[in-house]
Design a protein around this nucleic acid. Structure first.
Ligand code: FES
Ligand code: FES
Lengths: 141, 141
DNA sequence: CTAAACTTGACCATTTTAGTCAGGTATGTA
DNA sequence: TACATACCTGACTAAAATGGTCAAGTTTAG
């Protein structure tokens, strides 16, 4: 199981954004330089973050992005959901009654994977952007 | 983040194996039929499980595989390790001092991903094959 | 007017996944 | 001893996912 770069970058970028949030909109170019993430890729990511109302955009010169919510109300769950970084422990369809191998009943390990999925998601639900901020607060501008 | 089929299959197959373990060696063909997993793929998986001393093989007619340890002593961690299903939340090298983007220091979210990795691995360390067995015990042969 | 910065969508190389295929080799049983 | 069963090994591959790049816009402060 691995975390994709998209998810990791999204969180990195938002932490960076949150640190400078109070002052001015933050341009993707700045985030790109500070965090070493491709600008083009960041644009894809922020497009999704915006659609999910996690950030707001300000166009034009001196524009950039601003958080659209209190950092306390932005959980990792929200971020991951926005960029389609989802936890998938099973192949079988949730809705369907059929198992992962197409059989009529769920397989012998299905419950285990459900447990695992909940275990991981709990972690994401309990972490807010604010939690991350406190560990890395930038005192200077 | 998603769990790969290899990891899922390995656990499915071992649970299946464990259920019939006491009686006779279990052939991959049987597991393949019961669990709906490709025989050829199972062979790859069991080759690794054997190298890691989780199962023993018995060749020839009426042969098959048997658990090499007490089901209580086979944790998910061991199984996943055997089949190279590893939890990877970061891109940066563990040993290296460098960050994920090649910078000199670890990035602002590095600690978070470490926490996450530990969180997930804890789940795997606390689940044994026996735990899974009890939920799905087959009473008949 | 123009440069900075967001916006959109297409495109693509590489890697990983989830297998298949084609050969073996060992051994219990008839 | 023949033979069927079942393990063993390595090469190969189609399809999907990943991690981007590239091109061509639009908006707006100064
Ligand atoms: S994982 Fe859901 S049926 Fe196998
Ligand atoms: S994840 Fe380790 S440095 Fe970014």
């Amino acid at each position: 199981m691995k975390l994709t770069s998209k998810g990791r970058y999204a969180v990195m970028a938002l932490v960076d954004l949150a640190r400078f949030n109070n002052i001015n909109p933050v341009s993707l170019r700045d985030i790109s330089l500070r965090q070493g993430i491709s600008l083009d890729y960041l644009e894809q990511i922020f497009s999704k973050l915006k659609k999910n109302e996690i950030v707001k955009s300000i166009r034009g010169t001196q524009g950039g992005y601003v958080l659209n919510k209190n950092p306390n109300d932005i959980k990792l769950t929200n971020i991951f959901h926005a960029v389609d970084e989802k936890v998938k422990t099973v192949q079988c369809k949730k809705e369907s009654k059929r198992g992962c191998n197409g059989k009529a009943t769920k397989c012998i390990t299905h419950n285990l994977w459900d447990e695992l999925e909940i275990h991981i998601n709990t972690f994401f639900e309990n972490k807010s952007l604010n939690d991350l901020l406190n560990n890395n607060k930038e005192t200077r501008v």
